[in-house]
Amino acid sequence: MTRFVMRRITGGLTVLLGVLFLVFALAHIAPGDPALLIMGLESADPERLADLTVKLGLDRPLWIQFTDYLQGLLRGDLGYSYRAQQPVSVLIFERLPATLELAGAALLLSLVIAVPLGTLAARFQRSGWDYVAGLGTVLGFSLPGFWLGLLLILTFALFFQWLPASGRGGSLMGGVVDLLLRGEFRALGLSLRHLILPAVTLAAPLTALLMRFVRNGVLQALGNDYIRTARAKGLSERCVLFRHALKNALIPMVTVLGLYAGRLLGGAVVIETVFAWPGAGRLMVNAIGRRDFPTLQGAVLVVAVAFIVIHLLLDLAYGWLDPRIRYE
């Protein structure tokens, strides 16, 4: 077990190094000079451009820039943003709570919808209910995110005026603390109201994906002997479905969630833009447009670390979900 974890950690470090190298290479072979963009069009001047290039260290050979960056990382230094003129770590960590809130809310929402609906769709296979669920699944996959987001804004923010169209209503954790310590629901309410529309938009394709996996997993299990045994033992149908059959769907579901983690954490840029949500995706995409390489590298690194850690945890979770799996 320990050996397995150790091996996964070294593997993870190799992957991280690869990610860093890839993003570094991608950034530096790109047309568009960071110094030029920082200088700005209005104050374009060759002397200033040369000064900025030296100041940003962009005149040094690429491999020196890369090794310097790696050395900085080893000291825990993510670098300094060209554009925002702040440490990259500050830029990332001030956006992390919002990113996690949105990802967490979307994940929770899709689990809450997909698990029961998928199970029921499998139980009543080929019923009208199954077809409706199937149609919902396909629909969830097919709506372009920004399209769905704009339609939700028009419906719930403009037409009914039930929910705000954009922004974040303060920290969710802060709201929870307020509720627990002071019995005040206002802050949490405000936070949740802002979270609903972006979370629903982000959750739509994930819900569809999960529903498909849950349905297939449960369906497969229902045909198996152990379910027949369970039924024969006289267990209630609910117990058979949710205890035994659903468990069969868990492993593929967990795998798919792991693969989706990257998308939830860093790939929500379209939804963040539509709802003006202050997350990490926008930070990264803006950094590309502005050639703010330290910010881009830092943010990609943090998302990649999160992704790798999640995968390690998932691999460990397999063992817990399925006792047949042993770690060599």
């Binding site: 991280l16 890839l22 860093g266 840029v269 379209v270 590309i288 990609v300």
Partner: peptide, 15 residues
């Protein structure tokens, strides 16, 4: 896979 999926495409097209 460790890249946020769309981001890699954004980076390549951006570049």
């Amino acid at each position: 896979l460790s890249f946020p999926p769309l981001l890699l495409a954004v980076a390549i097209v951006g570049v």
